[in-house]
Amino acid sequence: MLPPRNRDFVFSAALVALGVYATCEGFAVYERAAAPPFKIEAMSVSPGLFPIILGIVLVILSVLLLIKSLIPEEGGSLAPGEQLAALAAWLPTLFRNRDLINMGIGVAIMGVYVFGLVKNLPYWAASLIFVLGMLLFLRAGPWWKVIVISLASVGGVLLLFQVVFRAALP
């Protein structure tokens, strides 16, 4: 994967952007609060104060991190231009790294479960499909074992929560 220096660089650059955004939103909140119906005009008591402070602190810290990722030290560093070039070279390798692909698909399955299945199917069906699918994808064992584990775990969860705790599931 990307060497740590490059990762820090990308990350801190993104954070600087986030910090700037937070500060701007903070000012927007301040403006909104100063208008009716709130009429909070003093900055010191405005709800925008803390976001602005946090945004500025974030920018400062991120810039520090950014600079650190550029300082020559053991572990190698690269000037910004070279960093970007390395990033560009690295991206295509993403698609070839099997670990990452697997992780990506796994996360995607989880996403489908959360955003799609649970909404449209009764809970036990959605969970069953999810666990089955996940275990099969991960090749966690022979197919009959997978089915048994899925049934047992979903059933156990239902038992624990709906009967013992009497808590309603989605």
């Binding site: 955003f115 909404k119 999810f130 969860v157 929560f161």
Partner: peptide, 28 residues
């Protein structure tokens, strides 16, 4: 085997998030 354990744990995570306010938004 972590491969078996993790999907189940994720299922529990979803339940745990939901049970706070009975709101699917928390799961998202």
């Amino acid at each position: 085997n972590k491969k078996i354990l993790m999907p189940i744990i994720f299922m529990l995570c979803v339940i745990g998030s939901y049970l706070i306010n009975y709101n699917m938004f928390d799961v998202k």
